[in-house]
Computed example of a mutant assay.
Amino acid sequence: MSRLPASVHVREVGPRDGFQNEPDIIATPDKVRLVELLARTGVRRMEVTSFVRADVIPQLADAADVLETADIPDEVSVSVLVPNERGLDGALGHRERIDEISVFLSASETHNRKNVNRSVEESIAGLERVLPRAREAGLRTEAVVATSFGCPYEGHVAPARVFEIARRLVAAGAQEVGFGDTTGMANPLQVREFFTAATAEVPGVELTAHFHNTRGQGLANVLAALEGGCASFESSFGELGGCPVPAGATGNIATEDLVSMLHEMGIETGIDLGRLLEASREAQRILGRPLGSHTLVAGPVDWNAAA
């Protein structure tokens, strides 16, 4: 087996990727409370919101209020998702509160058109304008390639196509590339081979895995990615989230499940599991329903870790 890293980076994306899929509007003070709880778990990077049109994702219409209100320690790097230049303009209006931006597109033509109503080439052209502007503003930049491991409409997505898109985004200014298993289609063998190749195909930038647990393979895919050389992951507390298209694409891997597994394997994250579970329990209370996280239900292997 490949040697595993001693530590990994974990970016918490629940306040954006998780919240945006909730059908009922979450009150801004509740969002702020959850962001503040997460910011004190030891997580060092967090995607807090997105500057998207309110009529497209009403849940995130309060992006500016959340950013300006939340008390986030300086050591936490704050990221926002921006879909286009208009979104970047919105983010730059709050530059003092933001450290990073994420941009996105799909490797699949069909998924990209259904998600953002653009061809892949049109999306790349737009991001080739966004990324340099963000870099000029002093922001760290991540580009996420969705459907990197398969598309629910087109099926198999060739890794060569994914790597080609990633290289173009790096050339445009992306300092990190995230590969998204957007609807939970990846399997561990595929993931191990993908990240083993990605290190050579997309050199010189941080490579991040973004897995969904739609078919229950999320953590198995994490282990496979680790074996393939990946040491950076995105996850969502409580297993919140999913994909707006298509139906049935359930949540991201739960941050507490990820952290619990990594810690049991002797891999450091810097995150306090007990505080993370506190944030997920509060989210459960606010949303008024059970969440999908296994560790939230069963507790950590070492109960003292969440005392």
Rank of each mutant, 00 (worst) to 15 (best):
S79N: 13
E75F: 15
A64S: 14
V76R: 07
V48Q: 15
I72H: 03
S79I: 06
E85H: 13
V80C: 14
E75K: 10
S77T: 07
P73D: 03
V82Y: 06
P73S: 05
T49V: 09
V78D: 08
D71H: 15
G87E: 05
F51R: 08
S79A: 14
V82C: 05
P83D: 14
V52H: 03
V52I: 07
A54P: 11
A54S: 15
I57T: 12
D55G: 02
E85F: 09
A54K: 15
T49Q: 10
V80G: 12
L60M: 14
E47Y: 10
A70T: 01
P83Y: 09
G87R: 00
L60T: 02
V56M: 12
P83Q: 10
A54L: 02
P58I: 01
V78A: 02
A61G: 15
L60D: 00
D62P: 03
A64M: 05
A54C: 10
E75R: 13
P73N: 08
V76P: 08
V48S: 15
A61P: 10
V48I: 15
L67T: 00
A54Q: 14
L81E: 00
G90R: 01
V80N: 14
A70M: 02
V56L: 11
D74Y: 13
L81C: 00
D62Y: 07
N84V: 02
E47L: 09
E75C: 08
R86M: 05
G90E: 02
P83E: 13
S50T: 13
D62I: 00
Q59L: 00
V52R: 08
V78E: 08
P83A: 05
V80F: 13
A63N: 11
A63M: 04
R86G: 11
S50C: 12
L67F: 11
A64Y: 07
